[in-house]
């Protein structure tokens, strides 16, 4: 964990492999659970686990700063927002129904085609994985470097951000500001109309109260 402990531990034979397989196994299982869980809010919580294991993989790649940023931004910030949005848009906390349209009257071959059509997204994703994997296998001659990542990587990153990459850095800050304002505007939305509605409701309630009082 410490700066003295991690590199020699990782350079020991097999340790990185074992850590990699444990983390990826967890990560893949949790990612499948995120996609497959019928309760959307629960899948939002499971997403935290996926991000946590991915941050572990960042640690394996000796990107300490980004592993922590991953936990702070993804696992807490974004997931929390997602979960709250889910709770707001799914007030009755119901499960998603597995609706499958299945035509009984088709001939067998047409049935197969229909089922392929239903699962088109599965084929698309499998094909995308296959394409990526074959591209990786075919392109396997990158100029690998034997150097270790410098221990003060944070300093390198910080210097690059304010020298070579200062314009993208500034633009990202503008983007964040714009996104902040845009999100507030969008989420606030039609507050005026809703206030009018509330006023109308309150007026109606007052009228009813008056009527009741008059009746008495």
């Amino acid at each position: 964990m410490g700066q003295d402990l991690l590199p020699p531990l990782l350079s020991a034979p097999g340790v990185e492999t074992w850590a990699f397989y444990i983390l990826t196994t967890l990560s893949i299982c949790l990612a499948i659970a995120v996609l497959a869980d019928r309760v959307v809010i629960r899948s939002g919580f499971i997403l935290i686990g996926v991000f946590g294991t991915i941050s572990g993989i960042f640690l394996l790649l000796s990107a300490q700063f980004l592993a922590l940023a991953q936990i702070m931004i993804y696992a807490v910030g974004i997931t929390l927002m997602v979960v709250i949005a889910l709770m707001l848009t799914n007030p009755r906390l119901e499960r998603e129904q597995a609706v499958v349209y299945y035509d009984e009257s088709l001939p067998p071959l047409a049935k197969i085609f229909a089922s392929c059509k239903r699962n088109l997204s599965l084929w698309v994703s499998v094909l995308s994985f296959v394409t990526l994997y074959s591209a990786l296998i075919g392109e396997n001659h990158w100029p690998l470097s034997d150097q270790a990542v410098s221990p003060d990587a944070v300093k390198v990153l910080g210097e690059a951000l304010v020298t070579n990459y200062s314009i993208p850095f500034e633009f990202s800050s503008v983007l964040l500001l714009a996104a902040l304002m845009g999100a507030v505007m969008l989420a606030k939305g039609e507050s005026k109309n809703r206030d009018d509605d509330n006023v109308a409701i309150v007026d109606e309630a007052k009228k009813q109260e008056n009527n009741l009082a008059l009746q008495r």
Binding site: M1, L5, L68
Partner: peptide, 11 residues
């Protein structure tokens, strides 16, 4: 000492 991290406060 082994627990000392270069990114301690961020951690």
């Amino acid at each position: 000492h082994i627990l000392n991290l270069p990114t301690g406060i961020f951690y």
